[in-house]
Amino acid sequence: MTRNARFIDERITLKYGTGGGAMRALIEQIFAKGLGDLGEGNIGLAAMDDGAAIRLGDRYLVITTDSHVVQPIVFPGGDIGKLAVAGTVNDLAMMGATDPLALTCAAIVEDGFSREMLKSIWESIRASCEEAGTTIVTGDTKVMGHGELDGLVLNTTGVGITDRIVTDAGLEPGDQILVTGTMGDHGLAIMATRNELALETELVSDVAPINAMVRRALEAGGDGIIALKDPTRGGLSSALHEMAEKSGVGIVIDEPSIPLRDEVRAVGELLGIDPLVSANEGKAVFGVRPESAAGVLDAIRSHPLGRNAAIVGECVAERPGFVVLDTGFGSRLLSEAEGELLPRIC
């Protein structure tokens, strides 16, 4: 069975940044080689999880880092500042650390960048930190020559303490797959702003810190919650593929039950892009034991950021590592995005 074929190119191209099989191969073949092994009971680079976990006595120190490059820097529903905070806070929450201790923030600024713009981005960083119940304790600033980067790049790192680590593996046949809300909002909202497409829509990014919602779900579901993954780059498809691959299970998804906004469906139809490979920045995918599924779903729906949550599928023994989509008309293997999302005509 050929699955994510190992990618051996001499040069790193755009497809290595989409969150799919190519990126995972790159990490395995280069980045994790001889690094990241923290020994028994710890989680390092090789696990390719949303973050790392270091045992401290009977608790864990969780660390995660993320770089943010988004064009445009300000978009409907948020900006690069909100994205930088939410991205790292959510990755910590995906490991079970829902009370971030602190964040760092390193900025690389293009020569000539507007001071007013920087102030407003830091205003939204402050607001997002407050919403997530954390703050920025250290950072770094670099300025590069004009034209050497696209305005601004932000890297954030987060640390948190947790008693229990939730990985993105460990699923078994029968476990239920749950998404905390509508899929594809961020990726297609960004795509719709590209002026030359001249689309007029109220579609906004879903970018938001979801640690409080995840905390509520963990309190309700406890050990019944087996796996957590935020479906950012590569969308729901890449998140599900990683969960299926790491747990060695197949996943069958009931497509009609996946919550989608009308505008996301419309922009997807117009541009020929599947919302299931479009990024989300304020959502999570839960893998839950059958008996805990209902309780976890209610807990998530009780939170404003989780009101559209739904159970969308389950794990099966057949075709480990594959994700099958039951479309209501038939079924197909869900594929991962190849390279950046591009509008299609055919």
Partner: peptide
């Protein structure tokens, strides 16, 4: 070979010979 999407005409601009069309809530 050709992605065709149906939409509802909301407004017509005679001199530019264009129409504003609504596709399930997205106008173009």
């Amino acid at each position: 070979m050709c992605l065709g999407v149906p939409g509802k005409v909301v407004d017509v601009d005679r001199d530019r010979n264009t129409a504003t069309v609504d596709f399930w809530g997205v106008k173009k």
